[in-house]
Amino acid sequence: MLVIKNLKANVEGKEILKGINLEIKAGEVHAIMGPNGSGKSTLANVLAGNGGYEVTEGEIYFEGKDLVELAPEDRAREGVFLAFQYPIEIPGISNATFLKTALNEVRKYNGQPEATPKEFMELLREKSGVLGMDPQFISRSVNVGFSGGEKKRNEILQMLMLQPKLALLDETDSGLDIDALKIVSSGVNVFKNKDNAVLLVTHYQRLLNYIVPDFVHVLSKGRIIKSGGKELALELEEKGYDWIKNDELIEENV
């Protein structure tokens, strides 16, 4: 589904990603872990097409399409979804308008008929139920006055509504208490199926107790320095990132 080859990217002229190679297949859950500043969020933003990030080298193919060539809205319509680390507020625009517009844009692009108001409301009721959201939120402005937890839940709701092929979750667990973490995780687990894929970007192993990854990658200084199964996350939790960094140093010295 997603193939990343030797991806390098800059932020404000500074190279953050220094040659990422990664392949994600349908049905898989990948976790990217790493210390602060290692480039985890950069990777998620580059995949989504954030204009603040510049791809300088390498390739990204999504379902055979060159993602770098696509505008961010077209990447979204193709099925790449980014759950933001810091969801943005849009004052004066209700969640209903926002969600319905987004849903219909994606549908239109994929040659599907637009959702009727009735369909939309039914879908919304079903998905917000999964996340235990107060139906009142639908008439509130997008993320305005939402608590940190509500914002993250809203991101997951959007994911459930839009049904992307690839969901990039950028530190979705940060700032959540344990109850909120469970709810958000259950949302992701409801979403997951054999035809889609999830890329989790996280600092902590905690989230991986609830969303079990098939692969764990450790990112450091813009490179994936170690990949493994879900047990790698536990090892990291136990030994900290320094353990790998030391390994890395040894490798580099050799």
Binding site: N50, P72, L82, F84, G92, T101, A102, E105
Partner: peptide
């Protein structure tokens, strides 16, 4: 970018932000 990432074009995004305002 947030609205783009949900499939909404830049032109529509600006209109949305302005209308909300």
């Amino acid at each position: 970018f947030y609205l783009n990432q949900r499939g909404i074009s830049t032109e529509d995004a600006v209109n949305m932000i302005v209308n909300g305002f």
